[in-house]
């Protein structure tokens, strides 16, 4: 039984599965790509064949433009086992954003699961993560320190609505990433009983429309840019993190600047960014979820892709597992929204 490290390797383009002839989430254009989810750092334009969930492909089309999400596209059903070269492969929900998948790969009796980005807490906008027992579990570690423990998102939304009630003449502008975080926030706000209009920065609308087309109702959404300042007093406005404290926000009435991100757990971080109301809501697994998931999949080996590898590897060792860093470059962190594209990302040549 060949060890997975002999057939799943890091190359400059990304994680390469030699017997299957494909890359997982490659950062450069390749012949055959398997894509876990549509965030810009995992899903790049310009590939030949792309295999991903139907939702991921649909969102990629919206963000990249028609035909840019791969020349040939294949969207298997959840759990449908495909044979690619000398490997078997299937997708299983990762609970990160709509369409996000873990990729399970079997080759000559051993199984690797590449989880992409994931979280374990319930999310009304996507299917929940399903643990798959495996020999090697490839995990992210964005919040790989025990100080990161995300609180109940419903309680964070209550804090937001409570602040809206306390400051009825101010605009609450919430910074959130355009894909996933934005739609989840909207659903959470709806579930907390807010039926009124929500105002959106123009960069957030296309993906919202895509979510709605795929059966995630988001209610009354209006473009913030078209609204008068007076109408925005007392309103909730959602915008990309890069816009909330910059020139774009000057149109808002005495804004309360909020940011929805797992990083907001550390107060100094909120202060340094000038955030008045931090909302600790994340699409990534927190420390407890990362540790629990290692137990749930019960893999003897843990490969850590991006984030704080050293702490998670230390925790893996404490569970009696072998952990090692997988030096993949190019995966950023959409939580921060730094450098995240405001509009459908510019298309680069093939």
């Amino acid at each position: 039984m060949p060890h997975p490290e002999t057939w799943l390797q890091v190359r400059p383009e990304g994680l390469w599965c030699e017997p299957g002839g494909f890359f997982v989430d490659p950062v450069e254009p390749v012949q055959r790509a398997v894509i876990t989810h549509a965030h810009a750092d995992h899903a790049r334009p310009g590939h030949g064949a792309v295999l991903a969930s139907a939702e991921t492909l649909a969102i990629m089309e919206v963000r990249m433009g028609e035909g840019r999400a791969g020349r040939a596209r294949q969207a298997p059903n959840w759990g449908e086992v495909l044979t690619l070269g000398d490997v078997k492969l299937w997708l299983q929900p990762a609970g990160h954003v709509l369409g996000s998948a873990q990729v399970a790969i079997e080759h000559r009796g051993s199984r690797v699961v590449v989880s992409g980005d994931y979280k374990r807490v319930a999310d009304p906008t996507c299917l929940p993560f399903e643990p798959i027992p495996c020999d090697v579990f490839v995990t992210e570690a964005t919040f790989g320190l025990p100080v990161f423990r995300h609180p109940d998102p419903a309680a964070e939304i209550r804090t937001l609505l409570d602040s809206v009630a306390l400051f009825p003449t101010r605009t609450h502008v919430v910074g959130c990433y355009a894909l996933g975080k934005c739609q989840r926030l909207i659903r959470l706000i709806r579930e907390a009983g807010w039926d009124g209009p929500l105002y959106l920065h123009g960069a957030l609308l296309p993906v919202c429309r895509a979510y709605e087309a795929m059966g995630v109702p988001l209610g009354d959404l209006r473009p913030a840019t078209a609204s008068a300042k007076a109408e925005l007093a007392g309103a909730i406005v959602l915008a990309p993190p890069s816009a909330i404290a910059d020139r774009w926000a000057r149109r808002l009435a005495d804004p309360v600047v909020c940011l929805a991100s797992g990083w907001m757990r550390v107060r100094q971080r909120a202060k340094a960014k000038g955030i008045e109301l931090p909302l600790v809501i994340s699409d990534h697994a927190d420390w407890d979820e990362l540790c629990a998931t290692m137990t749930d999949v019960d893999a003897p080996e843990i490969w850590v892709t991006h984030g704080r590898e050293e702490a998670l590897i230390h925790a893996a060792a404490a569970q009696g597992r072998i952990g090692r860093p997988l030096r993949l470059i190019g995966y950023g962190d959409e939580e921060e929204g730094e450098g995240a594209p405001l509009v459908p990302e510019p298309v680069t040549g093939p």
Partner: peptide
């Protein structure tokens, strides 16, 4: 993990609280 966390957060009370 405590040492790494303290190093990251920079404030003792906040590290422990978190």
């Amino acid at each position: 993990l405590f040492a790494w966390s303290y190093d990251y957060v920079g404030d003792l009370a906040e590290t422990v609280a978190l």
